[in-house]
Design a protein around this nucleic acid. Structure first.
Lengths: 211, 211
DNA sequence: TAGATTGTTAATCGATTAACAATC
DNA sequence: TAGATTGTTAATCGATTAACAATC
């Protein structure tokens, strides 16, 4: 299979979301043209994107919603369980832990870790808050696939480095820093402040053009 | 000024972050070449990006770190105050409210809103939690620039629509849905679950290639 | 069979990289 | 002045859109 471009991968979850809604509305089939109208993209792009992964549709018919939904789900790895731990049990960490749909999509929040003694031992809806000091033993013992980093950048960098040495292969990074490891370590960044700056850029841009 | 591409705008906050770090390390000047090594991009791209906004550098010298930092800050609209309210005072809403650096960067969290009677009246570090029922009066009275939507997609869509009618022009949307208004309304999306799916896509991809 | 719509190739568009003249 | 490095034009690369033959 050819290397799939980053742009295509970014669009897959959005297709998945729209197909889920259609599925819930009991829509059985949809053409690239109809879907393109719904999603505000070109039909051509939808067909190109999907054909990166092989033919999911049928000439003259379109795409079967449930089938396409399932296939994209498999591409996104949502057909298998993913064990995740959360490092940093502040508001953001707990927000992620408590997001109900994750469980439905095959994510298991195995534990949260924090250094704050007031939080350690506390039970949340999804897993107990454990002492950050025990995290390395924990990941060596349990089969942790994803580590969400919801703590300040200094400790995030340091702890992530040690976790890589313990065998962790994938990070969901909310710390305001770039983590760079070797190529086989996957890092997906969510930089909230940068998202907000994109917003204020657009506000400024609009205000400037009015003057 | 020509229309700046989305890709360039996405990179601006990252430049800003690196320049901030250099500035804090008292680095006075930097060349596009040095910065490119630090950031893992090409020097050519840095020069192209910056020249969208005019010449910030000097031949033979490079860029003055503090000056470039300030200029990019202005482009990002960080030289002016932004009044923001948060709709949905759950963990995610509170995480955003409590993120300390926002205040330093000119963001003022004026209030949080929720429908949950247990939360209403509660004081957080940045503003009190108010009754969602009062939000429309609030935005009409106060000069709210940005509304962060940290609540489920159903109410998010409904409330955002009404807020637009009250004059709100910019949304920071964490709900798992696309908001579509007219072109003069700015919507910046943070779809956390889609970010996580990109991560699991890459995990699956890696596992598949091993087989 | 005729109509619809995909899968796929070709054309276009835009973004990134390379090259170099301008200039500090 | 010589060296360094920008600003900017040109070349390349990749992504999106258009077109259409294949086929259900």
């Amino acid at each position: 299979m050819n290397k799939i471009s980053k742009a295509v991968v970014t669009r897959l979850p959005r297709y998945y979301r729209y197909l889920d809604e259609l599925r819930q509305q009991n829509v059985e089939r949809i053409s690239s043209k109809e879907l393109s109208k719904l999603m505000n993209v070109t039909a051509s792009q939808i067909r190109q994107d999907l054909n990166n992964f092989g033919g999911f549709g049928q000439q003259g018919y379109g795409y079967n919603v449930q089938y396409l939904y399932d296939e994209i789900g498999k591409l996104l790895g949502l057909d298998v369980k993913h064990k995740m731990i959360i490092v940093g049990a502040g508001n953001l960490g707990q927000a992620i832990a408590n997001y109900g749909n994750f469980r439905n999509r095959g994510f298991e929040i195995a534990a949260l870790f924090d250094k704050n003694p007031d939080l350690i031992g506390k039970k949340t809806a999804h897993g107990q808050i454990l002492d950050i000091a025990d995290i390395y033993d924990y990941v060596k013992k349990h089969n942790v696939e994803i580590v969400a980093l919801t703590l300040p950048k200094g400790p995030a960098k340091r702890i992530a480095q040690k976790l890589v040495e313990c065998g962790v292969k994938a990070f969901w990074n909310f710390a305001h820093t770039d983590l760079s490891f070797s190529d086989d370590i996957i890092v997906e960044n969510v930089h909230l402040s940068e998202s907000l700056m994109k917003l204020t850029y657009r506000i400024s841009e609009k205000n400037d053009s009015k003057e």
